[in-house]
Nucleic acid binder design. Sequence first.
DNA 1: AGAAAGCGTCTCCCCCAA
DNA 2: CTAGTTGGGGGAGACGCT
Length: 377
Amino acid sequence: MRGDILLCDLDAFYASVEQLDHPELKGKPVIVGGLHGNRGVVAACSYEARAFGVRSAMPTVVAKKLCPQAIIRPVNMKRYQELSAKVLNIYESFTPLIEVVSIDEAYLEVGKGRGVITGTEIRKAVQKELSLAVSIGVSSNKLLAKISSNLAKPNGLKALWPKDAPQVLGGYSVRIIPGVGPKTADFLKSFGIDNISELSKYPIGWFRNHLGARGIELFNYVNWVDERPLELNREQKSIGREITFTEDISDKEKLLAILNELSQEVGYRLRKTGFKAKTLSIKIRFPDFTTITRSKTPGYLLYTDGDLFKIAKTLFEELKLVKPLRLIGVTVSNLDKELQLSLFTEEEKNEDKLAEVIDRINEKFGNGTIKRCGGKG
DNA sequence: AGAAAGCGTCTCCCCCAA
DNA sequence: CTAGTTGGGGGAGACGCT
């Protein structure tokens, strides 16, 4: 039997960091993101801004109408990553069983019956050491931990166990279930289903018939059954870069030049993380917002800027575009770390192999089993 | 009604081979 | 010999997060 599951979610993370780094913003409506000519959207906003109806993903022009006095800050991803790492360090001092979901969110597993006390201590530690608020949901599975973390916000902790869930959650919209977005909610509404207790009346066959494999998962969820284990070593599956132009672009040469830039940026990040890619996709958005992607898996591993751009260019030209574009992007996926031919020098290669061997042995027999004698490490 | 970033992952569908 | 099944890979788009 596994232990208690915690979902730790930093409150209004980007906005809170801005308020932390710029104390004059404390207590004020803050919007992070939202620049980019007049085409920006809100990436994150403080609770003071939310009081005016401002939300993530809202166009800045709309947010400004709702809250003209909001202070708009650019995204400073490096800083957020730095603080996120510090938060993870604190989590690690409580348990080694951590699944990092995103920059501001992680599942933790602790001893059975220890969830509430550990969660309370974690909240205190993060507040004391980093001055950040973290909301925590506690349960015996990931689903209810996630849902109760949302009920705990802002700056709270809530435990919710499967036996209490029907009573506590029955009246809430089906949208509280992660994975039930606007489309699924609309579909359910066409059957007159709005809230959790209505949905939970349907038998498994109904879910299977109407929603397939996803439906069976949803049936389990709405009965508060969720056996998903924590994924402790999640590896990145794709690397991408995209840009929305401040004004639509139709010039093909210009678009190709931008595609080249983006390919180089993706190539740099690919090599920096030691991956090679099997697949490259380009993404294109037209002024009317219709978005398409096209991808290619050329049969050899991609890692040089030249190869990335070559494929991107081919995909772009195959589209025979005539309309102007609003956005263009490049993404690589099917990442491969094993079969890579190193770009490093021979010496660095040996250095890497040695590091790898040491890592393997320590993994197998425990840390500190072997170490390097002097030199690097 | 009008406005809509930049990441990333998931899921559906198709095709092919065993 | 033919039809159905399964599993993997590729491609496209939906979805979710700040």
